[in-house]
Design a protein around this nucleic acid. Structure first.
Lengths: 122, 122
DNA sequence: TTCATATTTCGAATAATATCAAAATGTCGT
DNA sequence: ACGACATTTTGATATTATTCGAAATATGAA
């Protein structure tokens, strides 16, 4: 992933409203939510919401699918996963970073931080 | 981590120049780099660089330490790690995301406050 | 077709961000 | 103190982002 692409994705999520919308769609699952439902949850007028949905769509973080007279938006896990992979690879280093990210997800899995110094150069 | 905090961190990295600066500092390690050295690598005039360094510092992603007449900036791995942990926890879900970012966390998705994965209400 | 609803687009105002020359500040060595 | 360098601040401008009412478009139902 290019730095430019990554920064565009980060910028898209770097706005409280858009991050909230994205998180809501992540929770909503693959089925997604229609724009009105999102607007209700987040509390945003249609025009503003549409603006942010367009932004998130443009960078690929979400996608909309017309269903009847609604448009269901859903998160694209592949893109956010690539972004997290990019950050883990390029924005972290060594023991200072890796254990916690893994632990936060692996929950109780107590991997002894016996240093797996993956100090690869990026 | 609050959504507002996360969005501020994401916004800070959501600019190509700042992301480049941060990645450079991650590579540089705990010792860091002084502003001039960063400016040379990135190709930015002092004033603009200072503006971005201040932004990254303000949100806590980097910190500067005066050494002699230079100021050495270094990445704060703790903060970026928290951000990655936040994203892994709140912006991903299920098999579509986990395998690449980390491993074996099928149970983590339950810990979130997710109300429920309501099935279709079409 | 006509109506009702869902969503986007337009337009225009406001707000925030980015850039950089020039000046100011800070720090060290002499 | 002074001079030399490192960095920040100022100030001004340019660019981009955000907001939302109103109008337009789209889709389905009656």
């Amino acid at each position: 992933m290019k730095t430019l692409t990554a920064s565009e994705l980060l910028a898209a999520l770097g706005h409280e409203s858009r991050l909230s919308v994205f998180r809501l769609l992540v929770e909503a699952g693959t089925e997604g939510l229609n724009a009105s439902a999102i607007g209700e949850q987040i509390g945003m007028v249609p025009a503003t919401l549409s603006f942010h949905l367009a932004h998130l769509s443009r960078v690929g973080l979400i996608k909309g699918k017309q269903k009847s007279r609604f448009i269901y938006y859903s998160a694209d896990y592949h893109v956010i996963d690539d972004l997290i992979a990019f950050m883990t690879k390029n924005c972290c280093q060594g023991d200072a970073c890796l254990p916690k990210s893994s632990a936060a997800v692996a929950s109780a899995k107590k991997t002894a931080k016996s240093s797996s110094r993956t100090k690869g150069k990026s």
